[in-house]
Each structure stands twice: as C-alpha cells, then as structure tokens.
Design a protein around this nucleic acid. Structure first.
Length: 212
DNA sequence: GGTAGGATGGGCT
DNA sequence: GCCCATCCTACCC
C-alpha cells in the first residue's frame, strides 16, 4: 500500500501525527547544501510539519542567488533577507501584499543567497486546525493550495524566521517509503523578472497544487 | 469554467 | 511613493 492517500471528503486526517512521525524521518541539514534547483525537486514529496499540523510538499520554486533578479536576495543583504545569505536548512519567512506570509527554505552554503519557495502542500495532519486558522469551509484542497494559504493553515509566520528545519516545532521530514510521482517543470508564478526560467517544480496531476 | 479588481503593510528606491 | 514570490469576492460565461 502506498504511504500516501488523497483526502476523503470531510476533515479526517489521512495521517494522524504519531503515524506520520513513525513513517518519516527528519531531513538532515546536509540535504540543503545542494543547488536550489536540486533541492526544489527533491523537496517534492517531503513533509512540512509545524506543531500539530503537517502537509506534503507538492509544489516548489527555486530562487537562485547571483543573477536571479526575481529573488529577494538580488538587491543585496538587508535585515529582511539576512537569513538567505546564511547557512542552509533555515526558514526564510516574509510578509507580502500586506496580508500574506510565504515560507522558503534556505539552500546552498552561506553566501550563495539561494532558496526554495514552498508553494503548495497536501494536508496530512491537523486538518480541523487548518480549517479554523483559514476560516475555510470549502473543500479540503482549498486549505493549502497556495504559498499564503499553507503558511496560514500551518500557523507559520515571521516568528519562525531563521529557524532550523531539522529540530524544534518547524521541521521537514521524508518518507521511509517515498511515494512515486512525476515532476512537471514550469516557469515561476507571480514574478516580473526572469519569467522564462523553468524553476517551478510540481507534483504532476496532484490535486493540491496552486494551479495546473 | 473563467477573470478583474480590491484589500493591505512592509521594504526599498 | 511605488512595488510586490497573494488571496478572495464578485461577476460573467
């Protein structure tokens, strides 16, 4: 039996937290030293946990250092972007459009200023809490199918800025038996620079992605 | 199914 | 003062 099941109707957890923890293990920091493009791809199918909620990553975007003008790091080191310039495996959470928080994972050795934006997850644990936080009464796929939605559902805010992802309340884990899936690569969404680069990675045909 | 427009505040020129 | 790595609602097929 596959370790992953799509949600039934209603808000039943497909993976209660204790079972989820038993079926996964923490991703070590060394995983994040790889290039942002590689990490973007390999984070698909991994599980993002925060406190009593968890979701499986189904959509990511790579933001490169250097010449990537769409990346927040392109304008240099500021108080907001400080963590991107540091060591990998940390959370870069920022506030956007006056109301949304977005979460990135810092990648590559300190100084590279690259990262991966988590754009969508498939809800696995704590769905009722997610629905309360989102004040969402629609179908379960609306809980976490967008970068601002998933942070709200999982309770991730700028308070988690800079936190390590291999310990503490905010972690990323991987399945001991990973599920099979195909990866689709497309341009990134919502940017005005470098719009043609294929840096968005999507679990093909997964219903919980932000857009097909 | 689709899209146009508004909300809202922090970061940076 | 302008620009957003967005989301929701209203409205229109």
């Amino acid at each position: 039996m596959l370790p992953v099941r799509y949600l039934p109707d209603g808000l039943i957890d497909p993976w209660p937290l204790p079972r989820l923890r038993a079926a996964t293990s923490v991703v070590p920091i060394r995983f994040y030293y790889a290039p942002a493009i590689e990490v973007s791809r390999s984070l698909l199918g991994c599980v993002l946990l925060h406190e009593q909620t968890a979701g499986m990553i189904v959509e990511t975007e790579a933001y490169l250092g250097g010449d990537d003008l769409a990346a927040h790091s392109a304008r240099g080191l500021t108080e907001r972007t400080r963590v991107i310039f540091g060591p990998p495996g940390r959370a870069y959470v920022y506030f956007i459009y006056g109301m949304h928080e977005c979460m990135n994972v810092v990648t590559e050795p300190a100084g590279s200023a690259s990262g991966v934006l988590i754009r969508a997850v498939e809800p696995l644990s704590g769905l009722k809490l997610m629905a309360e936080r989102r004040r969402w009464t629609g179908s379960p796929r609306g809980l976490t199918n967008g970068p601002g939605k998933l942070t709200q559902a999982l309770g991730i805010t700028r308070k988690q800025y800079g936190q390590r992802l291999d310990r503490g309340a905010l972690t990323i884990r991987r399945w001991k038996t990973p599920p099979p899936f195909e990866v689709e690569v497309t341009p990134r969404i919502g940017i005005s620079e470098c719009v043609d680069l294929p840096l968005r990675f999507v679990w093909k045909d997964n219903p919980f992605v932000s857009r097909h």
